[in-house]
Computed example of a mutant assay.
Amino acid sequence: MINKTDFVYSEASEPHRIRTKKILKQFPQMRNLIGKNPATIFAIIGLVALQVVLAWVLRDQSWWWVFGAAYVIGAFADHALFVMIHECAHQLLFKGRSANRWAGIFANLPQIFPSSISFERYHIKHHSFQGVHELDADLPNRWEAKLINNSFFGKAIWLLFYPVFQVFRLSRLRELQTFDWWVVANLLVQVVFTTAIYYFMGWHALAFLLLSFSFSVGLHPLGARWVQEHYLTHSVEQETYSYYGNFNAVAFNVGFHNEHHDFPSIPWNKLPQIKKTAPEYYDTLYYHTSWTKLFFRFLFDREISLFNRILRKERGKVALTDVSKPDVEMEPATL
Rank of each mutant, 00 (worst) to 15 (best):
N3I: 09
F7P: 00
K21S: 04
K21D: 10
K22C: 08
Q29K: 15
Q29M: 15
L33E: 06
F42Q: 12
A43G: 10
L47S: 12
V53H: 09
A55S: 08
Q61L: 08
W64R: 12
W65G: 02
A69T: 15
A70V: 00
I73H: 00
G74D: 07
A80P: 04
F82L: 11
V83M: 05
I85K: 06
L93I: 14
W102C: 02
W102P: 00
P110C: 08
I117V: 15
S118I: 14
F119S: 13
F119A: 06
Y122C: 07
F129M: 05
Q130I: 07
L135S: 04
E144K: 02
G154T: 00
I157V: 15
L160E: 11
R172A: 08
L176A: 12
L188A: 13
Q190R: 03
F193H: 04
T195W: 09
Y198V: 14
M201Y: 12
H204P: 00
H204L: 01
G223A: 09
H230E: 08
Y231E: 08
T240D: 01
Y243H: 14
N246W: 14
N253V: 02
D262T: 15
P267Y: 01
L271D: 02
K275D: 09
K275G: 07
K276D: 15
Y281Q: 07
Y287L: 10
Y287E: 09
L299T: 03
S305F: 02
G316C: 04
K317Y: 11
D322A: 10
D322W: 10
P326S: 01
E329R: 05
